[in-house]
């Protein structure tokens, strides 16, 4: 089934990615919701690499006549999707941290005012 060295290499790499991501999730170094895309990509590549006959049939449909290239195309598209998703996440985080910083600024000034008012009120002249 595993006919050539390249396919074997891809299978090992995909398995490695799968294990690495799962381990990172287990150690809480990676949040579940950010691991799903990685896991999905690893599984797809793994399945395509193992099921070589299917790959041989799908690849020509996409105009790819060297079947293993289809694995790399899959990996490339998958990475693009993941990067785009993370750019969107960064955008959202930036917006949220900006709002948080603005609120910190406003609230800090308020606390200082309240504290100095309390000090003034409790000061026995």
């Amino acid at each position: 089934m595993i006919s050539d060295r390249l396919t074997l290499f891809v299978i090992v790499a995909a398995l490695g990615l799968l294990i690495l991501v799962l381990e990172m999730v287990r150690r809480r170094a990676l949040a579940e919701k950010y691991s799903l895309l990685w896991l999905g990509l690893a599984v797809i590549i793994l399945v395509l690499a193992v099921a070589r006959p299917a790959l041989d049939r799908i690849a020509p449909v996409l105009g790819i006549y060297y079947a293993p290239s289809a694995l790399f195309v899959t990996g490339f598209v998958g990475l693009l999707v993941i990067l785009l998703y993370f750019s969107a996440v960064i955008t959202q985080l930036t917006r949220r941290s900006r709002t948080a910083a603005q609120h910190i600024g406003i609230l800090t000034e308020r606390i200082e005012q309240i504290e100095s008012k309390i000090k003034r009120d409790s000061d026995p002249k």
Binding site: R98, A101, Q102, I104, G105, I106, T108, E109
Partner: peptide, 22 residues
Amino acid sequence: AKVISLPYNLGIGAAVQTGFMI
């Protein structure tokens, strides 16, 4: 003046917006 200090540099837009929030 009353001073609002942002914890780190947010850029002029966010700074002005903080003023509008107030």
